[in-house]
Nucleic acid binder design. Structure first.
Lengths: 192, 192
DNA sequence: TGTACATCAGTGAACGCGCGTTCACTGATGTAC
DNA sequence: TGTACATCAGTGAACGCGCGTTCACTGATGTAC
């Protein structure tokens, strides 16, 4: 059954989007290609008309998730308090409760580090995210350093709040990190 | 073949220790019980004489790794600059390069959060680790909050430095976070 | 315009593999007499 | 002290299952004449 010209590209995109969601929600190893294709109304054999391996899909899905996340926060960086808006969003209840639509780093980075060969896409995801934050901080050498540290805090706090059982404790981790980071952002904005 | 009185307890401990190492190095899902038992010179069937499921082993191994880590850093907290020693150790090259002997949170927390039901052992691991740091900061309400944020930064920075491909970038993440956190620790120690 | 053919996205059975778990068993040692 | 028996940590084959990947095939559509 041959399809219209852009049909394959559309299916390709659907697979990438669904995979990007599942990798973030369930983890890479726990995401099977069979259930993934089935969820899109396709059979698993067709997968290899689009990707040469699961590893290739992982790489592409990670890039897609990074871009998706970038688009989601783009408007935050056009406001007068860009960093504070970003921090509020990153450490929101919505972001904690919906990893499948959020930043791929808290969910995928550790697993990618454990796989044999790390992926260069992690580097660019980190650099891109930290770059935006550094820009909001003035882009000095200090700003670049601080943005890396802040990004670490954001990721660590989100991971912890997601893996802790006590909901009250989880909320406290988010709130505490949010206020500390916003305090840091304000302090950094005042000094220069 | 019946063994001496404490033989079973010893084997139990050997399984827990080896599992705690592999879960941290390879991840929980990627660690098979068969290779694990084989590495100890045992056959996989015997596993169920010690644990009722892999999930039970995960729980016990996580507690074991937390205690192990606690013992490893205990002496740091008896020095005159307790927090700085701990930070240097947590963000050392050795800790980054040997997850199997390090803190279980950067390696296991995300995966435990993705599994259906989160484990209460994560809560106590976080609380224990943050508690020690808070004590070093004076144990005030502010100290408790700050220790949670610092722990988030430690975990996030370690995860990032492990999953990034560029070794120079990985080193920069560690160094930057180390200095920022020690600066925070000194500032907090000066104020009260 | 109508017909023959080539294309190729998607199908679905099959591949070998390792997973967690079960189970009938073995056999060295501790215990009872 | 010597013998019979019970214990039970560990053995290893087998279970069903889902994994990633391969492959011969299908059949609707675009292209060529």
């Amino acid at each position: 059954m041959r399809y219209s010209a852009d049909h394959k590209a559309q299916t390709h995109e659907r697979i990438v989007k669904e995979a990007a969601a599942r990798f973030r929600r369930d983890g890479i190893g726990a995401t099977g290609l069979q259930p993934l294709m089935k969820a899109l109304g396709l059979t698993h054999g067709g997968f290899y008309a689009h990707f040469k391996s699961k590893d290739e899909l992982v790489e592409i899905a990670l890039r897609s998730a990074t871009e998706e996340m970038g688009a989601l926060v783009a408007d935050k960086f056009n406001q007068d308090k860009p960093l504070e808006g970003f921090i509020d969003m990153y450490l929101s209840d919505a972001h904690r409760d919906h990893p499948e639509r959020g930043c791929p780093l808290p969910t995928m980075a550790a697993e990618l580090g454990q796989r044999g060969q790390p992926s260069p896409s992690v580097d660019s995801a980190v650099q891109h995210r930290a770059g935006l934050m550094a820009q909001a901080l003035g882009n000095s050498k200090e700003a670049q350093a601080q943005s890396l540290v802040m990004l670490s805090t954001l990721i660590g706090a989100l991971v912890l709040s997601r893996s802790v059982e006590d909901q009250e404790f989880a909320a406290r981790i988010l709130t505490t990190a949010r206020e500390a980071l916003k305090h840091q952002a304000r302090a950094a904005a005042d000094i220069p």
